[in-house]
């Protein structure tokens, strides 16, 4: 099955979603800038969102086992939640900056062991 030759179906969506997810995960794991890490979080959440939307369509998924409106609504909720979480995380990063004068996450290593 060559994804590049087939018409766009569920798998394509899932692959994109997966790529976004992995990218986000890598971003979270490697970025030294705290804001970069937050961006990674956004990517992860949106990757999952993509999955949800894909699964919700009866055309993509199949008329018997599609998530339907549940999937769409979950995606909406997640977007809201991601925004809220980002806001909070930014506030925390700001607080961190106030205390450490940097947003380099490697500076946050006093607590260990």
């Amino acid at each position: 099955m060559n994804l590049l030759t087939e018409p766009v179906g569920l798998t394509h969506y899932l692959v994109v979603g997966a790529v976004m997810f992995v990218t986000g995960a890598v971003c979270m794991a490697t970025k030294r800038n705290a804001l970069g890490v937050l961006m990674g979080i956004e990517l992860v959440l949106n990757g999952a969102n993509l999955n949800f939307v894909a699964f919700s369509s009866p055309y993509l998924r199949g008329s018997s086992v599609f998530l339907g409106l549940d999937g769409q609504l979950i995606a909406l909720f997640v977007i809201v939640l991601a925004a809220a979480e980002a806001a909070v995380a930014l506030a925390i990063t700001l607080n961190f900056y106030n205390n450490h004068a940097t947003v380099d996450v490697d500076e946050a290593d006093r607590l260990k062991g």
């Binding site: 794991a29 890490v37 946050a108 260990k112 062991g113």
Partner: peptide
Amino acid sequence: LRVAQTGSIRQYVMFIV
């Protein structure tokens, strides 16, 4: 075992994966 807790957030996330 304490060594595992390196204090570096990046490593923590890495450990998740």
